[in-house]
């Protein structure tokens, strides 16, 4: 049988799925053991046990100075910034993307401009944002929005234009106005894509969040990583990176479930 036609069963599939993760942890454990046996005070690859201690300290023991549980307050601060920024980006992308996709006049006005803006490296704008908007939350949120919204707008505008012309014509023969077409034909078909677009932008959004927090913040996951970097606290950095990854993976998965739950038809077409 050809390899392209061989398919793993459910058990094998689960094993294959877990294998790279297990291998990664194993490789780390071996490397860490090798280094620690040479030098027990090595900080680069701390033992898994040391990391568990660090997680315990960060997540379940209140900070002596502030009385806060550091991991949770950092997570709250970061997720707060991220959700405000992504909410704003989504709203901007939805409205602008539909206008650009549907109306030739708006497309002529905005499409080249948005294409240009989306080419500006957002991190190069970060100093400007800090100077203009100050070092507070606004600059961080603005960075994420600037980094994420143009790509989402372009994606949505393209999806709107990809809707079969027949559908729009059909709606017109049913007497629909431009507004009604936007509301009943374009919007519902674009919302699932908006969720997917948002999922695809989660990675960049985290990138911009960590970058902004690294440079200027007093809380947040990115802030913490860059703070403890000074003490070479790899036992804190590794769990934080894993935690950020986990948060992003969960968000990604939850958004996809949300799409299927709210728009069941959007999963039928792929058949």
């Amino acid at each position: 049988m050809r390899w392209i036609n061989r398919k793993p069963g459910p058990g094998v599939r689960t094993m294959l799925m877990l294998a790279p993760f297990v291998l990664l942890v194993l490789a780390y454990g071996l490397g860490s053991m090798a280094r620690l046996s040479d030098n027990p005070s090595d900080k680069l690859l701390p033992a898994l046990g040391t990391m568990v201690d660090a997680i315990n300290r960060m997540a379940f023991v209140p900070d002596v100075r502030t009385g806060e549980y550091v991991l949770w307050s950092d997570t709250g601060a970061s997720l707060g910034r991220l959700s405000i920024a992504l909410g704003l980006s989504t709203l901007i992308a939805l409205v602008t993307g539909m206008l650009v996709g549907m109306l030739p006049y708006v497309r002529a006005l905005l499409a080249p401009f948005i294409a240009t803006i989306s080419m500006v490296p957002p991190l190069a704008l970060l100093p400007i944002l800090f100077i203009v908007l100050g070092l507070g939350e606004t600059a961080k949120i603005a960075l994420i929005v600037i980094g994420v919204a143009p790509a989402m707008i372009r994606d949505l505008a393209l999806r709107v234009q990809e809707l079969p012309r027949e559908q729009i014509t059909k709606a017109e023969t049913l007497g629909a106005s431009s507004w009604q077409i936007a509301l009943r034909v374009v919007l519902p078909q674009i919302l699932p894509r908006l969720i997917t677009s948002l999922r695809l932008q989660l990675g960049p959004a985290w990138l911009f969040l960590i970058a902004a927090e690294a440079i200027s913040a007093d809380s947040g996951l990115g802030y913490r990583i860059f703070l403890v970097r000074r003490y070479l606290s790899m036992d804190v950095i590794f769990p934080y990176v894993a935690w950020i990854t986990l948060l992003a993976v969960i968000t990604n998965f939850a958004l996809d479930r949300l799409r299927i739950a709210v728009f069941p038809w959007s999963n039928l077409e792929a058949r």
Binding site: E166, Q167, K170, T173, G175, Q189, F263, S266
Partner: peptide, 20 residues
Amino acid sequence: AEPGPDRGVVFQRYSVFPHL
């Protein structure tokens, strides 16, 4: 010069709305 409700249409494909 634009489609209106006095003329109905059925195409070979994409005549119905997949989300309804």
